[in-house]
Amino acid sequence: MEYVFTPPPQAAIPVVGSQQFFPVHRVYLVGRNYVEHAKEMGHTGREAPFFFLKPADALVVVPDGATGDMPYPPLTSDLHHEIELVVAIGKGGSDIAAADANAHIWGYAIGLDMTRRDLQGEAKKQGRPWDTGKGFEHSAPIGPIHPIAQTGLIESGSISLEVNGARRQSGDINQLIWKVPEIIEHLSRYFVLQPGDLIYTGTPAGVGAVQKGDLLEGTVDKLGSLRVKVA
Rank of each mutant, 00 (worst) to 15 (best):
G42P: 06
G121Y: 02
P144N: 12
Q126P: 04
F50S: 14
I145F: 02
V61T: 04
P144Y: 08
Q169P: 07
A109S: 14
R128P: 03
I89S: 01
N164G: 15
E182N: 06
A149C: 08
I159H: 00
A98D: 01
G143E: 05
E122M: 14
I142E: 00
D95Q: 12
T151V: 06
E84Y: 06
V62P: 02
S156Q: 12
L59H: 08
T67H: 03
D172V: 01
N174M: 12
T151R: 03
W130P: 04
A58M: 09
I173W: 03
A140P: 02
P147K: 11
G107E: 06
L112Q: 03
E36S: 12
A140R: 01
P55H: 13
V61L: 06
R46V: 15
L79D: 05
H104V: 02
Y72M: 06
S156T: 08
T44F: 11
G133D: 04
R116S: 12
Q169Y: 06
R128I: 04
Q126I: 05
P73L: 05
N174K: 15
E36K: 15
G133N: 05
G127A: 14
D78V: 08
R46F: 10
S139N: 11
E36C: 11
L153D: 11
H37C: 12
I145H: 01
G90D: 10
G135F: 14
L112N: 03
A97E: 05
H37R: 12
E122I: 09
L176H: 00
A38G: 04
A66N: 06
H138A: 12
P74V: 12
G171C: 14
